[in-house]
Structures are given as C-alpha cells and as structure tokens.
C-alpha cells in the first residue's frame, strides 16, 4: 500500500506553504459551511474548487471533530435514500459568529500584508519589463 501522491510530495518541499495551509484550514472549513450543512467530502471538494488548501484529506476530519468539541459545529448522521449514511456538519450560532470575526480579521491582515509585499511585486514587474 502506498500513501504518497503528487500533492503531498510537492508540499513537503515547501514547509512554509504547508504551515500556511494548515493554519488557514480551520477558517476555510468553517467558511465552507456558511451556506448550509455539508459532509466531510463535500467540504473537501468545496475547498479544492475554491482554493488549494487541502494537504492530506484525512486531516479535515480531526479538525471538524475539534471544531465540534469547541461548540462551533454540530454534526448529524443522515441516511441517504440510496447508499450509506453520511455525517453532515453545520455551523452553530457561535460558529457563525466566529467565522464572521475570522473573515474580518483575515481581510485586514491580508490587506496589510499585501501593502507590505507591494515593493517585491513592483520589483518583479520592473525586471520583467526590462527583459
């Protein structure tokens, strides 16, 4: 049995990027549930299409479990008409409050960082123009 895939190999080469993804995965998971209940794989698919946040897919489940213990999420097993039961997660009132707060902090934070790295981005532009 092999557990390697291209994604995780790429990420291993840049620990900073991996750290960054890890740090924001919780916020992303909460954001994914903003519009309504989803089960684990749906959350992962949502994150895959909207971002490239996911490292190992299995890591989402302990995170969801912890968010639930912190009272930000609730979960419920729902029996499908055809197929097997799936565990759906939804935001609690404090979960909604929390992700709203996180989103506001994140917007400020990233705008400030963007200003900070602007010279780097400008410099890159100049170099490319010279070529």
């Amino acid at each position: 049995m092999t557990f390697n895939n291209q994604k995780s190999v790429e990420n291993l080469t840049d620990p900073w990027q991996a750290q960054l993804k890890k740090g924001t995965l919780e916020m992303a998971a909460l954001a994914a549930l903003w519009s309504g209940p989803l089960y684990g794989l749906e959350i992962l698919r949502f994150l895959e299409t909207k971002s490239e946040l996911v490292l190992a897919e299995g890591t989402i489940y302990p995170i969801l479990s912890r968010l639930k213990k912190e009272g930000l999420l609730t979960s419920e097993w729902v029996e499908a008409e055809a197929g097997h039961p799936r565990k759906y997660y939804s935001l609690t009132a404090s979960g909604r409050e929390r992700i709203r707060h996180m989103a506001a902090v994140w917007v400020d934070f990233s705008a400030n960082l963007r200003r900070l790295i602007q010279p780097v981005l400008d410099h890159k532009g100049q170099k490319e123009e010279k070529r």
């Binding site: 049995m1 092999t2 557990f3 994604k7 190992a56 299995g58 890591t59 489940y61 302990p62």
Partner: peptide, 14 residues
C-alpha cells in the same frame, strides 16, 4: 487512500 494520508497521522490528531 494516498490522498487521505497515513492512518497513524489522522489518529494522532484525534
């Protein structure tokens, strides 16, 4: 299974 990651790593987080 590869995309899920090692079972030990998942379990450790729990």
């Amino acid at each position: 299974l590869g995309a899920l990651g090692k079972p030990e790593e998942i379990a450790n987080q729990y």
